[in-house]
């Protein structure tokens, strides 16, 4: 077991950020954390990266208790934050050399290691450029290089592709998957991009500090039976009530669209249209996506917020 989080709770004043949360992770695993803003993802990652101490419960990385032996944990994790941590007024190489020194590397060993990591991430030619003059994609790569300097066993990535264009994002994921293949690094990544979540081995869906679903992307999508029919009607609320009285299927109203789980959508659609004469504006269906799972699992939450 590489990571064990047991019954961790954390609050900021009256606000409960994490509520009795547990998770476990092995080597080579890529675990994605999905959740709306304020769901507790960032708090969890702060706890894993030893920036905050858990107020309640236990975080163990490689067998070390993060609260009691933070130094041992820090030596084994690499963290890529949402924000830039490289000094903009220093070059890539100067930044990495400084960071290596924080990890206790020095002399020839440090220089060789910095060169090696820069080579791996394709930033070696740009090493003498100041960080402020780099593009967003290169800056992110330099950030990963920083997190990899000490060959960590676990990488913690907090929305690492924020602000990247699609090509840079693909590059980033190639680097991450390569790392897992070569070094069996375990990776925990928070994201709100479903496309990225698809690349994870397993996903944890968080909402209000509680885990609402967990599984591989396929397992999660399978929690939606069959397909998803999306129906727009003149009066969505009335249409929903009318449909609920006539059909025995999972239905909910999300952002003004009626959302029906149907085992055989192509048969269901004509019946739905017939049931609402003159009311339907548009109707269609698609195979379930992670986005659907996410909307389903967090819809109660959002309804509460909109009231």
């Amino acid at each position: 077991m590489l990571l064990a989080v047991e019954n961790v709770s954390h609050r900021y004043g009256d606000l409960i950020a994490l509520n009795s949360f547990s998770m476990h992770m092995n080597r080579r695993e890529i675990v994605g954390l999905l959740g709306p803003n304020g769901s507790g993802k960032s708090t969890l990652l702060r706890l894993l990266s030893t920036i905050s101490k858990p107020q309640c419960g236990k975080v163990e990385v490689c067998g070390f208790d993060a609260a009691k032996h933070p130094q041992a944990v820090r030596a084994r994790i690499g963290v890529v934050f949402q924000t830039q941590t490289l000094d903009k007024l220093l070059t890539i190489e100067e930044n990495l050399l400084a960071c290596g020194a924080f990890h206790g590397l020095s002399g020839r060993g440090l220089i060789d290691r910095v060169r090696q990591v820069m080579g791996q991430l394709g930033i070696a030619e740009r090493r003498h450029e100041l960080c402020k003059s780099l593009s967003g994609g290169l800056q992110r790569r330099a950030e990963i290089a920083r997190a990899l300097l000490h060959e960590p066993q676990m990488l913690i990535l907090d929305e690492p592709t924020t602000g990247l264009d699609p090509v840079a994002r693909d590059d980033f994921w190639l680097a991450i998957e390569g790392l897992r293949e070569r070094r069996s690094t375990a990776i925990v990544v928070s994201t709100h991009l479903f496309e990225e979540a698809e690349k994870c081995d397993s996903l944890i869906l968080l909402s209000s500090g509680v885990r609402v679903a967990e599984g591989t992307p396929e397992e999660l999508k399978a929690t939606i039976g069959g397909q998803v029919v999306e129906l727009r009607a003149r009066d969505p609320q009335a249409a929903l009530e009318s449909l609920q009285s006539q059909f025995d299927a999972q239905m909910r109203l999300i952002d003004g669209v009626i959302w029906v789980e149907a085992e055989q959508a192509h048969r269901m659609i004509p019946r739905l249209v017939d049931a609402l004469p003159g009311e339907v504006l548009s109707i269609g269906f698609h195979q379930p996506t992670l986005g659907d799972v996410f909307r389903k699992m967090t819809s109660r939450e959002r309804a509460a917020v909109s009231v």
């Binding site: 990266s49 130094q71 934050f81 924000t83 830039q84 000094d87 960071c99 920083r146």
Partner: peptide, 14 residues
């Protein structure tokens, strides 16, 4: 504010 400090604090630097 810019995150440099957080980057240092997650390393084992005493």
């Amino acid at each position: 504010k810019e995150g440099f400090l957080a980057g240092v604090l997650v390393t084992p630097a005493p």
